[in-house]
Simulated assay, not measured.
Amino acid sequence: MRKLNLRLKHLAQEHQAVMHFISAVRGANPESEADLPEVVRRVRKVFVSDLDPHFVEEERYALPMLREAGRDDLADKVFAQHEAMRAMEKALDKPTTEMLVKFVHLLEQHVEFEENEVWDVLDVELEAQARAAATAG
């Protein structure tokens, strides 16, 4: 059972919304390249309003905790994925279907990586911090 603090629980819950977004983008299936700009416009809007702020919050709260736990490898990978998606979003100025598919695929891989590896490490770190606080006080 996850013991994540409130802020990290919120981030984990946002992953569910991201997975729904990924499904919606995949379901949009532009019928032609002429439809692509509208799909990309929606993706970029969600990126600016939801995804990038989510990344910033993870960088502010989750990544330092990973580093404290001695997991620079995970923190570096999360940050590298964030930066790759930021670069891909900028590249969508001149979109192709292939670029959009790559962006959505990386976003999905990122969420799965965090859910299957990162949050488990954070659970252990938070438990250790709670035990240390209980024995100190």
Rank of each mutant, 00 (worst) to 15 (best):
A136D: 13
V25M: 12
H54P: 07
R7Y: 10
Q109T: 07
W119D: 12
E115D: 14
R2N: 13
H20K: 10
K77D: 09
H82E: 10
K9Y: 14
G137H: 13
E125G: 03
V78M: 07
M65E: 15
V48Q: 09
L8W: 02
A133H: 12
T135W: 11
A24F: 10
Q109V: 04
M65P: 04
T135V: 12
L107P: 06
L4I: 04
L66M: 10
A69T: 02
M85I: 11
P37D: 15
K3W: 02
E125T: 02
F103R: 00
A133Q: 14
V101F: 01
A80Y: 04
H110P: 03
A17D: 14
E59C: 03
A130K: 07
L63W: 08
M1A: 13
P37G: 13
V118H: 01
R60V: 11
N116V: 00
H82F: 08
E38G: 13
H15F: 05
E83K: 11
D93Q: 14
H15L: 03
F103W: 01
S49E: 11
L4P: 01
A28W: 12
R71M: 09
R86S: 07
S23N: 13
D52G: 03
P37A: 14
M88T: 03
Q16Y: 07
L63Y: 08
K45F: 05
H10Y: 11
A84C: 05
L100K: 02
R41D: 14
F21W: 14
S49H: 06
G27K: 10
A34F: 14
K90G: 05
H110N: 06
P30V: 08
W119C: 04
V111P: 01
H54C: 03
T135H: 11
P37L: 15
K77R: 12
R86T: 05
R131E: 11
V43W: 02
E127M: 02
S49V: 03
D120S: 08
K9L: 15
R41W: 10
K9R: 15
V48Y: 03
L51N: 07
T135S: 11
F113W: 00
F21Y: 14
E89Y: 00
R2W: 11
D52H: 13
E98K: 01
L6T: 11
V56G: 03
M88D: 02
E127L: 02
E68K: 15
S32Y: 09
A80Q: 10
A24M: 11
E108I: 01
L11F: 07
R2E: 10
E112H: 05
Q16K: 10
N116C: 03
A136G: 10
L51H: 04
E115I: 09
D50H: 12
